[in-house]
């Protein structure tokens, strides 16, 4: 709630800082993937190419997250939440997930023989953490006992859709 109060006290600054935080944590979680893709395509490591590809990817996702959030809220008929604030909480939640994902990926340095296990499980755990955080914060802020179950139902469906897509495709 402390962070939510901070967001409400200065929305513009919060919006910029939270988006920057998301960019940093997203890069932290995906730099190995970008490096791998760079080596595969170019045959060598190029820091500039890795950063550029991550910047483009992050920019696309930063634009896509508000769009997808709005579409889903409209689809579920949730019109009572403050959209901009809600989107910032989405960014915050997924920043936390990306941070955990990136931190777990660092285990590869110590246990490279379990590289694929770490990559797959850390992505899954990061996702779960993001959705739990998002639900627990927003359900308390914007929903009551009566309508929380409908919100949870929608969140659960979207989580399983994203989790299945992320894990098996």
């Amino acid at each position: 709630m402390f962070i939510v109060n901070k967001i409400r006290s200065n929305y513009l600054a919060s919006a910029i800082i939270i988006r920057l935080l998301f960019v940093v944590t997203f890069i932290f979680a995906n730099w190995q993937l970008a490096l791998s893709a760079c080596v595969m395509v170019l045959g060598t490591t190029s820091v500039a190419v890795v950063l550029l590809s991550l910047a483009i990817l992050t920019a696309m996702i930063t634009v896509l997250i508000p769009v997808i959030t709005n579409v889903l809220l409209n689809a579920y008929g949730i019109h009572t939440v403050p959209r901009q604030e809600y989107i910032l909480i989405v960014f915050l939640s997924f920043s936390a997930g990306c941070f955990v994902n990136g931190a777990l990926n660092l285990l590869i340095m110590a246990m490279p023989f379990a590289g694929s296990w770490i990559i797959i499980l850390s992505r899954f755990l990061g996702n779960v953490l993001s959705w739990i955080l998002l639900y627990s914060v927003t359900s308390r802020l914007y929903f009551n006992d009566a309508n929380r179950k409908y919100y949870f139902k929608g969140m659960a469906i979207m989580f399983f859709v994203f989790a299945v897509v992320g894990a098996f495709l």
């Binding site: 190995q32 993937l33 791998s36 893709a37 490279p112 023989f113």
Partner: peptide, 22 residues
């Protein structure tokens, strides 16, 4: 075994990409 590996992309079922494969 654990040198010059790139994780996250897998081409041969190794769980990683290794440029020496080329």
């Amino acid at each position: 075994l654990y040198k010059d590996l790139y994780f996250g992309v897998d081409m041969w079922g190794y769980g990683y990409y290794q440029p020496i494969q080329n």
